[in-house]
Structures are given as C-alpha cells and as structure tokens.
C-alpha cells in the first residue's frame, strides 16, 4: 500500500492518545481505534499507526497488518474531489471497467490512490442504486450517468478549470 508522510503535531498525538484511552488502551479494540482515528484524520498515515501502536504497546507491524487487511482503511487522504466508479453488476456489464481504466490513465493513479496535487482520488463502489444510469461515476456528491470512456477527459476538465 502506498502512503504519504506527514509530521504529527503534539495536538494530533494527544488526540490519538485520547482515542486509545477511550478504549482503555486495549489492543483487542484495535479495529475500533483505527476506525475512530480514520474518522478524525480522514485516513491512516504511517505516523498515526505508529503512534497508535505505541499507545497500545503493540508492534507497528501488527497495526499495519490490520490496516491492510480491511479495505475500509486507507493510508492516503481522499482527494478534494473523490471519484468513485460503481462496479456493481449493472455498471460492470455496461462497461464500468473501461471507464475505470480511462480514469486511471487520465489521472495516472490506481484505485485507492490520490493524485500528487491532492485533487482527485479514485475508488470503486458497489452498486449505488442508480442502475438505470449505468455505468455510474460519482465525483463528490455529483453523479454522472451513462459514462463512456470518451467522456472521462471532459468530466475531469470540469474540475480542473
């Protein structure tokens, strides 16, 4: 999993400490602690994982093991405009895969990553319930229906201007 590096401020360390304490520093609560930390920071950079490990007195490797096991956890911050491609059955059948490939090419990132300028991140979603519009791409709160690979460039441009 690729990650970015940050420097934690004292305030951040304090927040992590408090989260851990609210679970009695119990390593058995690691998943819940990671949840809370991700809620607060938006993602789980290495430094946050290390600080959690320290507070719970467990190895960083163990924490990282859990973070990488659950796809819910992310080590990169979401972009300013998070892009989600629906890969539910209907969208998939109607060419979501090709749209996704085009997005990857256009943004030069893979799924789960964020562009270096922090503008876009890319993820996949299971059915968003708009099967009539398949294939569906969401950017932030906005939904794009019947997206064809050729449309990708234009859609991205909307956010680049």
């Amino acid at each position: 999993m690729s990650s970015i590096h940050i420097k934690l401020k004292d305030k951040d360390c304090q927040t992590i400490k408090e989260i851990c304490e609210s679970f009695n520093n119990d390593p058995g609560e690691l998943i819940n602690i990671l949840h809370k930390a991700q809620e607060h920071f938006g993602y789980l950079p290495a430094e946050v994982q290390e600080t959690i490990a320290q507070n719970l007195n467990i190895s960083v490797a163990k924490v990282y093991g859990v973070v990488t096991f659950y796809s819910f956890f992310s080590m990169t911050p979401k972009g300013k405009h998070p892009i989600s491609v629906c890969t539910g059955t209907a969208c998939y059948v109607r060419g979501a895969e090709k749209v996704l490939e085009e997005l990857k090419k256009e943004l030069k990132i893979s799924v789960g990553e964020t562009t270096p300028d922090g503008k876009f991140s890319l993820s996949c979603l299971r059915c968003v319930g708009a099967c009539g519009l398949a294939p569906v791409v969401m950017i932030g709160d906005k939904t794009y229906g019947r997206v064809a690979p050729e449309d990708v460039k234009k859609i991205i441009e909307e956010y680049n201007s």
Partner: peptide
Amino acid sequence: GVLSGINR
C-alpha cells in the same frame, strides 16, 4: 514485532 501478516 517485526513481522506481521498483511493484506488478505
């Protein structure tokens, strides 16, 4: 604590 199972 160096090694851990990761990913799935």
